[in-house]
Computed example of a mutant assay.
Amino acid sequence: MGFPYIQRKVERQMGEGLILVNTGDGKGKTTAALGVALRSAGCGRKVLILQFIKSGANYGELAGIALLPTVEIRSMGKGFIFHKQEESEEKMKEHQQAAKEAWAMVETEVKSGQWDLIILDEINYAIHYGLVDVETVVNLLKTKPESLDMILTGRNARPEIIELAHTVTEMKVIKHAYQQGIKAKRGIEF
């Protein structure tokens, strides 16, 4: 089954690759990035999603993306960092090691030239918690292949990242089910 208007093999688009940032306290940062991944897949583009905080356990997007042949997702984190509580020193070392390994993979994959779009999911959290240095990210964005599109998600996007981006969207909470005592729902929040 296929759609005749979708080219299965897409020539790389020439021109400047875009940098998009999804940030803010509202829901939808990763969801919006996944929507772009879906759109890109529909155009036959190769997409890589690297998750910096999520550990790969039981998220709906993992099963959904497995159905898209031109999209790959890798959950590289050790789970959420609870910012309202102190993480143990041991747990923070696990987060730091995971972020170091994830960043090494980012550098390899960005240089590989095999992707049309790379999404760095939750990278802004990783920067905020000191797991990845903001200048390292800025340098990568400045030196990435010209045609590579990139999306960076997560709260607390740094001004240096925002300055480099072509498009920045801030998700703002107006109302959230959690505030009404409704627990996170599978297929909606995760």
Rank of each mutant, 00 (worst) to 15 (best):
K93E: 02
K84V: 13
K91Q: 12
E109D: 11
E107F: 10
E107Q: 14
E89W: 05
E94Y: 05
E94S: 10
T108A: 14
A104H: 11
Q97S: 11
Q96P: 01
H83E: 13
K91G: 01
A104F: 05
W103D: 05
E87Y: 04
E107G: 07
E89P: 03
E89L: 06
F82V: 13
Q85N: 14
G77R: 00
V106M: 09
E94N: 06
F80R: 08
T108W: 04
E109F: 08
T108R: 15
A98K: 01
K84I: 12
W103C: 07
S88N: 07
F82N: 14
K91W: 06
K93Y: 03
V106K: 01
V106I: 14
M92Y: 06
E101V: 06
E109H: 09
G77L: 03
T108D: 10
K78L: 02
E90M: 04
A98V: 08
K93D: 02
V106Q: 02
H83P: 07
F82E: 15
V106T: 02
K84A: 11
A99C: 10
T108Q: 15
I81Q: 01
A99M: 08
E90H: 01
E94I: 09
K78F: 07
K93P: 00
H95M: 11
I81V: 15
F82K: 15
G77K: 02
V106D: 03
K84M: 12
E90N: 03
H95C: 04
K93G: 02
F80I: 05
K100L: 07
Q85H: 15
A98S: 03
S88E: 09
A102E: 02
K91T: 11
S88C: 06
E109A: 10
A98L: 07
S88I: 14
M105D: 08
F82T: 10
E86H: 08
Q96G: 03
Q96S: 08
T108L: 10
K78N: 12
Q96A: 13
S88M: 08
Q96Y: 05
A102G: 09
E107M: 08
M105H: 06
H83N: 13
A98C: 09
H95A: 05
S88D: 11
E109C: 08
K93V: 05
M92K: 01
A98E: 00
S88L: 08
K78M: 12
A98M: 06
E94H: 09
I81A: 03
F80Q: 07
S88P: 02
E89G: 04
M105R: 11
G79Y: 01
F80T: 10
A104P: 00
V106F: 08
K100I: 04
E94F: 10
F80E: 04
E86K: 15
I81N: 00
E109Y: 12
A104M: 07
V106C: 12
E109M: 13
